[in-house]
Design a protein around this nucleic acid. Structure first.
Length: 491
RNA sequence: GGCGCAUUCGUCUAGUGGCCUAGGACACCGCCCUCUCAAGGCGGAGAUCAGGGGUUCGAAUCCCCUAUGCGCUACCA
């Protein structure tokens, strides 16, 4: 198993859309493994499907990786000794391999039309036979093949060995044996001259000196194709590691239908990269029997393919939310203030003047920290600080917490009266707290019983950052006005 | 249908023959703290290790069978 070559891994997505979490988890593991081994991580774009190509994908792929802090040593924008890193720009490489295989009798041109293949499959299905190419063009003589290739479109199929078995030695699954008689001659070069995935990976992984091919488990069935390709080409295959799938809440492979979302959606939804990394890292891997919080630095240092498990993992959003809250609380004060400012700029109503009042943000910041799980919760929670009146609310919001209308009105009136007696110069937390606590006696109610009414009056909702501090931030005038507004609403 | 993979608390996982009357984390429940909501602290419930056969003095850990789930089965990756 020992190999003196430096470890080289790659992430080789196809640009058919924005990368989703399952895909990025593969990137993360590949990257982490390379880093833990002091090796290199390569980014390669497998843009061989012209029909499904989405122009913006490559940028989304790079942006996703950068957001998480996954850096690549070779690939788009950074270059490297194996340029280019786009498969569409490496066509001669695949064509050369295909010719070599045709000459060696290990591959052949196939002139079958889509219609014929369709009929063939229908017949196979009707006869309850396993689908697969029937090998019609495998019989063609070299001369005929050569001649027809001048006039007809064709694909190149790989002639799979049909006797014996093909054995995959997988780092996470151990030995997996495939019966060759069940294999069929797959297309390796399409009629448009582009390679299929199978040829593309084998050629490029070899040319780019990849030592460890880490990919999702959905690929394990095609491993025998790749292994036989390596054999036929006389090349040495990388060490494979097939990662367990990530499942949606319905326990099916994560897909658009099954709760998956593009990775970058998590950014716009207010998740922190550190939380995402931590979350993804433990989907199929663990450090030991007790660690559940892990930084990206620790991951780089300790990640090990030998601790990847084989069974699929369900994506648990509750856990991600917890981790996100954890990393928010762990954030440094200055960074936290910047974060709040950013999310306020984008999340507050247009009526709030920009740039958003910095001192207010700075004072609200510490109060906000342990109350936020996602960054997109920031703006709704501090919105009340930026306006004359509280955000619109229904009077019922008060009555839900202080059921009797008369009592609620008395609470608000008494508060307005006593708070109104506090001169502006003495409007501070200590004084406000004393006054509001002093309301217990005249109202004959426990603080916790009546205070929600004040929350709603001041911030439009029954829960939020601490009331006493909020009143200071609001100032005497606005605080009192909101009390009067609430009384009017109830009356 | 065929082939392949998987199967430990609801979820992510620890566990590689005796340390397991199965550990940690999230979620859940309770108590404490408390101006709301959180956060935090403490505690609780929760897995007869899919089921059945073996092997062994001894199995979650090894073998076999069954069941279930998932993946693949394209000129998509």
């Amino acid at each position: 198993m020992s190999d003196s070559r430096p470890v080289r891994t790659r992430y080789a997505p196809s640009p058919t859309g924005d990368p989703h979490v399952g895909n990025i988890r593969s990137a993360l593991f590949s990257w982490a493994y390379a880093r833990s081994q002091g090796g290199q991580f390569i980014l390669r774009i497998e843009d061989t499907d012209r029909n499904r190509l989405v122009e913006t994908s490559t940028d989304a792929i790079m942006e996703s990786l950068r957001w998480l802090g996954i850096d690549w040593d070779e690939g788009p924008e950074v270059g490297g000794p194996h340029e280019p890193y786009f498969q569409s720009q490496r066509l001669p490489l695949y064509q050369r391999a295909a010719s070599q295989l045709i000459e060696a009798g290990r591959a052949y041109r196939c002139f079958c039309t889509a219609e014929r293949l369709e009929q063939m499959r229908a017949a196979q299905a009707a006869a309850k036979q396993p689908p697969g190419y029937d090998g019609l063009c495998r019989q063609l003589s070299a001369e005929e093949s050569e001649a027809r290739s001048k006039a007809e479109p064709f694909v190149v199929r790989f002639a799979m060995r049909r006797e014996g078995q093909t054995v995959l030695n997988d780092l996470v699954r151990g030995q997996v044996v495939f019966e060759n008689k069940l294999q069929d001659d797959f297309v390796m070069l399409k009629s448009d001259g582009y390679p299929t995935y199978h040829l593309g990976v084998v050629v490029d992984d070899t040319e780019m000196e990849i030592t460890n091919a880490i990919r999702g488990d959905e690929w394990i069935s095609s491993a025998p194709k790749h292994i036989q390709l390596y054999e036929a080409l006389g090349w040495t295959p990388p060490v494979w590691a097939h990662l367990p799938l990530i499942l949606g809440p319905d326990h099916k492979k994560l897909s658009k239908r099954s709760g998956d979302t593009a990775l970058l959606d998590y950014r716009t939804n207010g998740y922190l990269p550190a939380a995402m990394i931590n979350f993804l890292a433990f989907l199929g891997w663990s450090l030991d029997d007790h660690t559940s919080i892990l930084s990206i630095e620790e991951l780089k240092q300790h990640f090990d393919l030998s601790r990847v498990v084989a069974n699929p993992a369900v994506f648990d959003i509750d856990r991600l939310n917890f981790l996100n809250g954890h990393y928010i609380r762990a954030m440094g004060d200055a960074e936290w203030v910047e974060t709040i400012a950013t999310w306020c700029e984008s999340g507050l109503p247009a009526s709030v003047p920009r740039p958003v009042d910095r001192p207010v943000i700075e004072q609200a910041a510490p109060l906000l920290k342990e109350r936020i799980a996602r960054l997109d919760e920031i703006a709704p929670m501090v919105a009340f600080l930026f306006g004359e009146e509280a955000p619109e609310y229904a009077p019922e919001a008060i009555l839900e917490r202080v059921p009797e209308r008369e009592v609620a009105i008395r609470v608000l009136e008494t508060a307005a009266e006593r708070l109104g007696a506090v001169p502006d110069a003495e409007w501070d937390v200590a004084r406000i707290e004393a006054v509001i606590r002093g309301l217990e006696e005249p109202l004959g109610l426990k603080l916790r019983k009546f205070v929600p009414a004040l929350y709603v009056a001041e911030m439009g909702r029954a829960q939020g950052i601490p009331l006493f501090d909020s009143l200071v931030l609001l100032g005497r005038e606005r605080s009192l006005r909101r009390l009067r507004t609430a009384i009017r609403k109830l009356g």
